[in-house]
Amino acid sequence: MAAGTILLAARGVAKTFRLGKVEVPALRGVDLTVEAGEVALLMGPSGSGKTTLLSILGCILSPSAGSVAVAGRDTAGLPEAELAKVRLAHFGFIFQGYNLFPTLTAEENVRVALDLRGVKGADAVERSREALCAVGLDDKFRMRPRDLSGGQKQRVAIARALVAEPDILLADEPTAALDSETGKAVIAILRELAVTHGRSVVIVTHDPRIAAYADRVIRIEDGRIVGQGQEVL
C-alpha cells in the first residue's frame, strides 16, 4: 500500500453505553485518519475511550453515531456478517491478553489466521513458520502457549496478526504484560512492519516509552481527542 493512502477514517464517531437506565458516553465525536505506513499511538488515562475507539476502528464495535471507512469503504450500517468480512480482509489484531488458543501449538495458532482466509495445507504451514521466524520464534513452532514466556506469546500473537498480510494492524496494550526490553522489541517489530510493508499500525498503550517508535501520538481524554503529535506526551 502506497504511503500516504488513508486506510482508516473515522468521522464524528460517538459511542454511548447504557448501564441500566444511565447512559455513559465513551466517545464524543472523534475524527481520525490513519495512513498507510503510519504507526499511531492512542494514549490516555483509563476510561478515556481509547479501547472503545480501537474496537470501533476495527469494526468490532458499532458506533452510536458517525462512521468509519476502511480502505475507502464506509462500514456504517453493515450487518455483522459483512463487518466480519471487512475484518478478515483488512485487519490484524493483537490483544492485550494475547488470546492464543491454549490447545494449539504456536504454529497452529498462526495458521488459524490463514485457515480463516482459505489458505490451507503445506502453504499455510510454510507461511506460518515464516511469520514465526520473522518475530524471532524459529525454534518454537511446536510449543504451546503454556510453555512460552509472555514476550514469546505476544510474538506469536503478532505473527498471527501479520501472517495474512493485513493492511491494518490494531494492537491493544501489546506491551502491558511485558518487561521493558521485551516491550521495546515487540514495538520495534511492529514499527519495522509498518515502514517496510506500508501497513497502518494503531496501538493503544499506557506506555510512554514506546512513543519513540510512533509517527504520531493521539491523546484521548473523556472520549475526545485532545491532542496529536509527540508533544502531547
Binding site: 456478517a81 466480519a84 468480512k85 471487512v86 475484518r87 478478515l88 485487519f91 488470546n99 480463516l116
Partner: peptide, 10 residues
C-alpha cells in the same frame, strides 16, 4: 470470541 473478532464467519 477471538475467532469472531478476527473475522471468522459464524
Amino acid at each position: 470470541g477471538t475467532l469472531r473478532a478476527m473475522g471468522a464467519p459464524g
